[in-house]
Design a protein around this nucleic acid. Structure first.
Lengths: 340, 340
DNA sequence: CTGAAAGCGCTTACAG
DNA sequence: CTGAAAGCGCTTACAG
């Protein structure tokens, strides 16, 4: 019922082999024949059947993207960056999330077989429990995104979370803060751990003798809120709070507002990510900007380049300090940051 | 190099036909044989080749999703809703964006051939210029999302933008506002048009004789900002501004802040969408909440149900008024709205 | 219940 | 430059 290559061949009065060659732009086809084939294909509204093509050519022109989730700004931006490069290269995107259940990664990965030419995988857990390594076919090129899998030999792109956290603490200290609390991300999240490590090391270096002040969180807004409530209740309050991501910083900000604690006058506040919200809240949030779509774009480029030299660019993405009012800038200013 | 059904057959000492049946859960297989096949498949780490399976079975277990873009909260939420249902039904998602270029829809649509069992398409333009209808194969079930294609016969899910805009104007009027300005979305966007139409009709009905006050915008934050600047400069200012979406409302809010115009004391402000930002800005933004992920989920369900009766649920998604401080609620309250 | 075989719609050596 | 044919890895009538 759908038109196939045979129909085109019949109408163009050539063999299917010739149709295939003409349509795929091979050069061993007379221009006259090619024109006839194109016309026939056009008249019949022919589109090659992707599965058939994949089966015989061993290529799918599709890239599989396996993510922890599809929810929220981070993944949206990541996919956007990937999609941009995909489009430039005529690739399709098969996206799959394992909905925060690492154990479903295996199924997601295996299901990609025969559907994709390469894989972009993000698995931000501290411990890889084999879900990944056991299901990564060696025959399929893979680029890992923000995935902690040392010495696996896979191409891997990551964010310099450690260095960025150090930088943020340095910023806070330079503004005279001495009691800097840190709201952590999930324990099993590698990014969160690195940020915590950066906080600790920076504190030890810049404020030797100061005790660290770590409040548990899970990257969710409400855990930040709880942290803020706890801070408000504390006998001795910190003079600055550094949250491991922006959503928690916002939750914390909200709790501080409720408790009539002024930011930044009473407590300075900083986050991590620079989500769009960050510049809109009051006061605008100081944070470390991570260019997420660029991370996605670079990952796909690395995948497509796999093999060539340029593929060896393993340098981490360096987040950038975005200084806004919440950490002690001019709180009355309604500067837009660098959004313009 | 990859293990195929033949390898499994050899190891299990049965024919490939039996392997296929055993693996696909057909009931005409002895349990003993099935067990042997499963063991062999497992031992060999066999995964069926998707393209081959699709080619012979005529099913792909994949749903194609064609969107205007992948950028931002709206699409992120939409895809999340779709993904959730897809997962429940063991379906894969092939996503494709045409990057705001309607003319690329054709290519995106055609490329889905042989890759998907059904299509979810969003094309929010006022005029369908044939990109869509010309490339929608009649053999593929399709559900349109927020796509204005009257009498096309396709299943279609939409948001009641008109009714929601009317409701918002009613809300503003009930708070005593009389000079209500409206910031429009893109001219060729159907949602934007419907919201504008709702604004106009509600104004005519509730405040007869009042002149409408329409400021052009394009759904982007900066166009809202420009509108806010224009409003600040006006000799006579509106006492309320209704932006066709939240991003523009935020841009406007920012401009008003800069001009030291207080919201809501001097000018009330309302948006549309209820993006996460809305409750975090200062003051929190009154808006119409659209349950976007539900829209996505419903769309895919409709697609999967196509044919059955339940598929006829063409009722539009009804946005919900979320009243926050920006439209005259208690501006000092730091209530969280209903986020908890 | 099981196997041999045809066929899905392409691509690609192999001849000519 | 073009065609006949094999083959990609499955599924599914058709026999038995």
């Amino acid at each position: 019922m759908n038109v196939t290559i045979k129909d085109v061949a019949r109408v163009a009065k050539v063999s299917v082999a010739t149709v295939s060659r003409a349509l795929n732009g091979h050069d061993n086809v007379t221009e006259a024949v090619r024109a006839a084939v194109l016309k026939a294909a056009n008249d019949l509204r022919y589109t090659p059947h992707a599965a058939a093509r994949s089966l015989s050519s061993k290529r799918t022109n599709t890239i599989g993207v396996v993510l922890p989730d599809l929810y929220g700004e981070f993944f949206s931006e990541l996919v956007r960056g990937i999609d941009q490069v995909a489009r430039e290269h005529g690739k399709y995107l098969l996206v799959s999330s394992y909905h925060g259940h690492p154990e479903e990664q295996g199924a997601a990965l295996r299901a990609m077989r025969g559907r994709v030419d390469g894989l972009l995988v993000m698995s931000p857990y501290v411990h890889e429990s084999g879900f990944l390594t056991e299901n990564l076919s060696s025959s399929l090129p893979v680029v890992l995104i923000n995935t902690h899998l040392p010495d696996s030999g896979y191409l891997s792109l990551r964010i310099d979370n450690y260095g960025a956290a150090v930088q943020m603490v340095r910023h806070l200290v330079s503004h005279g803060h001495k009691r800097i609390a840190f709201i952590t991300g999930p324990e099993d999240n590698f990014d969160a751990r690195e940020r915590l490590r950066g906080y600790r090391d920076a504190l030890a270096e810049l404020l030797p003798g100061t005790k660290e002040w770590v409040i548990p969180g899970d990257f969710g807004e409400s855990s930040g809120h709880e942290a803020g409530v706890a801070i408000a209740k504390a006998k001795v309050r910190p003079d600055a709070v550094f949250a491991a991501n922006d959503m928690m910083a916002l939750g914390c900000l909200f709790a501080l507002n409720q408790a009539s604690i002024r930011v930044p006058e009473d407590i300075a506040l900083a986050g991590f990510d620079d989500i769009p919200l960050a510049r809109y809240v009051y006061p605008p949030l100081t944070t470390m900007r991570v260019n997420i779509s660029d991370l996605g774009a670079r990952a796909l480029r690395a995948l497509l380049d796999a093999g060539s030299e340029s593929a060896n660019d393993n340098s981490p993405i360096i987040p950038k300090l975005i200084e806004r009012a919440s950490s002690g800038g001019d709180a009355r200013s309604s500067e837009r940051g660098d959004s313009s």
